[in-house]
Amino acid sequence: MNNKKPITVVKIGGNIIDDSIELKQFLSDFSKIEGHKVLVHGGGKSATKMAKSIDLVPEMIDGRRITDAAMLEVVVMIYAGQINKDIVAQLQANDCNAMGFSGADGNLIQSEKRNHPTINYGFVGDVQKVNTALLETLISSGIVPVFCAITHDKKGQLLNTNADTIASELAIALSAIFEVTLNYCFEKPGVLYDAEDDSSVIKIMNQELYAKLKAEKAIHSGMIPKLDNCFNSLSKGVQKIQIGHHNMLQNTDTIHTSIEL
């Protein structure tokens, strides 16, 4: 018999972060989720905009950002600073007792600098360990953790880490204690057969279909790490994963993509 309490992990990204009206509505929806919850946010578009304003040229490979020292300063400032604190303040306005974190805070998420045989990703971190005990203490105390996409290596170095991966790793860690639902929310209604057609939602995505669509280049860029993380999460104890517009958080009839192994 499963006596685990439910918890909802939500990752928000895409254009919603940059749309103040849409973000306000999302945070209202998120605040109304009953029970324990955790929020993870991206902010890549804001970071890219800031980088370009100071003549830094953003570089992406398969949806993942190359992060040199100058770009790291930008992403820390935007993710852990402006976006994180703005979201926390808005959640407090919704009577949601949020607290903002990077992975370095309380050693909540420890990573190591990515070592790739052919690509120098710079200061990009791959998650090694989640401080589940402290996370559980915070959540059980009524805190709603809000994580940005910054981790650390416990040697004094901050690292840029894919926000989809952070959401996945937190969900996996929490699945030892809670029954976890992981929601990836963005501006689209789900994973699409045709990126230009919002009505072409794939209602159920499994590994076989994913492999086929990836081979056909129908799925590419940032959707690849997102779906990779989804399948990894399901294989490691996460109960349920959905991708779609944030309307699905309060309306279960909203069309979205469900992920299945």
Rank of each mutant, 00 (worst) to 15 (best):
I166W: 05
S175G: 08
L138H: 05
A176T: 14
D86Y: 05
A98M: 08
E216I: 07
S28W: 01
S168P: 02
D253N: 14
I143F: 12
R114C: 04
Q82V: 14
V76K: 07
G106K: 04
A70F: 03
L158R: 11
S221D: 15
G81R: 01
E112C: 03
I7C: 10
Y210R: 08
I150S: 07
S200H: 07
P225I: 00
N84T: 05
S46L: 10
A149F: 03
N107C: 12
N183S: 12
K226M: 02
H256S: 15
A167W: 02
L23F: 06
L213I: 12
A133I: 10
N206Q: 07
S233T: 09
N84W: 00
S46H: 04
S221M: 13
M60W: 12
G13C: 12
L158V: 06
F26Y: 15
V191F: 04
I87A: 09
Q157C: 14
I241K: 00
I83S: 12
I33S: 00
D194M: 07
N84D: 13
H245F: 12
E260Y: 06
T118D: 09
D197T: 06
I166E: 11
G81A: 07
L23N: 11
E59A: 12
K212E: 15
C185S: 10
Q25Y: 11
D86G: 10
Y210H: 12
I166H: 02
Y121I: 00
V57P: 02
G125E: 00
H245D: 08
D86W: 04
E260L: 06
N229A: 07
N229E: 02
A80W: 00
K37Y: 02
L209Y: 03
A195I: 08
I7P: 04
L39G: 11
V88S: 15
G35F: 01
I259Y: 00
L209D: 10
A133C: 05
R65M: 04
E196I: 02
Y79I: 03
I224D: 06
V130N: 03
V88N: 10
N107T: 09
A89V: 01
H36P: 00
T252M: 13
